[in-house]
Amino acid sequence: MLYLTCPNCGRRTVEEFRYGEIPAIPESITDPDARDLDRGFMRTNPFGPSVERWFHDYGCRRWFTVTRDTSTDEVL
């Protein structure tokens, strides 16, 4: 079960939070000829550590940043 630690409210289960996406696709892997394709459809799908934004929906209602290992759901 995935627990996240909100900087304001402490450790809570994932159901209290809203997943806020991974920040934009890094420029380094973006194909300059396919910017629209990337913006519209492409996603990163990291296996391993991933820097993400989360929103504490049923708590302080603030955004915070989490590094999570997507292969284990462990928060790093």
């Binding site: 079960m1 995935l2 289960t13 994932v14 159901e15 809203r18 997943y19 991974i22 799908n45 990291p46 296996f47 991933s50 993400e52 999570r68 997507t70 292969s71 284990t72 759901d73």
Partner: peptide, 18 residues
């Protein structure tokens, strides 16, 4: 589906109860 992308096969009590 769970909202966050993940490759983890672990299931959660929160899902089960809701």
């Amino acid at each position: 589906i769970d909202r966050q992308p993940s490759y983890s096969y672990r299931s959660s009590y929160g899902f089960l109860s809701s």
